[in-house]
Nucleic acid binder design. Structure first.
Lengths: 206, 206
DNA sequence: GTCTATAGGGCGATAGAC
DNA sequence: GTCTATCGCCCTATAGAC
């Protein structure tokens, strides 16, 4: 039985890279730091991933698959049902991102994401559109069902502004920061609550 | 008369740096590119600014002084008046940022700003708080006057979420992008209009 | 198939000549 | 005030060991 393969070099690189990238940024963390932290040789990154940017893309794919999978799961539980309210759909969109930000491994990914948004890279835009566009389309459809009086353009704008508020809240940069005497879990609930109230009113604007 | 000094090396560096940083990011643009574009020697940056990061800080100070100066001017015209409505205060906060993003020189600064937000650097946070905290406090006071039923914590949260929506809209990353047949100026008006409606409702949430 | 050692070229910073 | 030369660190690519 060829059980227990020695140690997965590739995954040790991934784990070390995600932590260091979130901490110091894509350019701030060097492959030398990453490979040293993972306890592997510098060139192992090129062997397993091809280049630094392909390593970054792999991290994105991993986390975004997770977030968007959870979003779709939550959406499918409520989509089309007569008792569903706007807040339910917002929660299905917002909660997976907030929750991931509170789980050990993924705790720092949303900061990576916020950083990447600001990079304004067309490659990333295409990547997101190609891989997760279908998720967005399903949310747009459900938002449209619950806000029938809203034109398509207004709807897109408001979902976009909601995403901005979410990303900003996740990036942890704003004035509001978790006070040291408040547990992490409670702070995340507060984020979801505040986002729900603010964006629900924003989306409903007549 | 010692008029017309040769050529201001320092300012040529500043102009070239702002353009290249906005285009390729702080790490993406090298001092070698900046100095080549400005037509000055590489070492001139270190002589005039001390380091790359101090050059970046100088650019921030310049643009933020501009934006916050305009914000205060707009706020002082309406603060405390009985006929002032919430939308006026939001506009005083939002419009200077949107307008600057449409002026030749500053056209790309808000992207630089969005990027910096995502960097999540405590140095930047302290810099903003020390230099522009008084502007924020005056806006908080006026928002508080018009939303008296809102607790202080809720008020801070919502202003923060508004800033997130603004920053995201400015970064130009979202789904909504200017269509090529719509003039830049008209697109900026649309941004202000959508932001006003969305955030006014969000702030007013009962 | 997996990994190591190493070389090439770009980067920011600085010392010291002018 | 400006420039050249140079140092140490970075990412990438690749030849070859295991």
């Amino acid at each position: 039985m060829d059980s227990t393969p020695p140690i997965p070099t590739k995954q040790r690189i991934l784990a070390a890279a995600e932590e260091l990238f979130a901490q110091h940024g894509f350019d701030g963390a060097s492959l030398r730091q990453v490979t040293a932290s993972a306890g592997v040789n510098l060139a192992a990154v090129n062997y397993h991933f091809g280049s630094k940017s392909q390593l970054i893309e792999e991290i994105f794919r991993h986390r975004l698959d997770d977030i968007n999978g959870r979003r779709l799961l939550a959406l499918h539980k409520i989509a089309g049902k007569p008792e569903t309210v706007l807040e339910d759909v917002i929660a299905a969109y917002v909660r997976p991102a907030v929750e991931l930000s509170g789980e050990g491994e993924g705790s720092v990914f949303m900061r990576v994401m916020a950083r990447a948004y600001a990079e304004h890279d067309d490659t990333l835009r295409r990547f997101l559109s190609e891989n997760y566009g279908h998720v967005m389309r399903q949310f747009v459809a459900e938002f449209g069902r619950l806000l029938p009086e809203l034109g398509k353009e207004d709807l897109y704008w408001r979902i976009d502004l909601m995403t901005g508020a979410l990303t900003h809240a996740m990036s942890g940069f704003g004035m509001i920061q978790r006070k040291s005497d408040i547990p992490e879990r409670q702070h995340r609930e507060k984020i979801v609550e505040q986002l729900l109230r603010f964006t629900a009113s924003g989306l409903r604007h007549p």
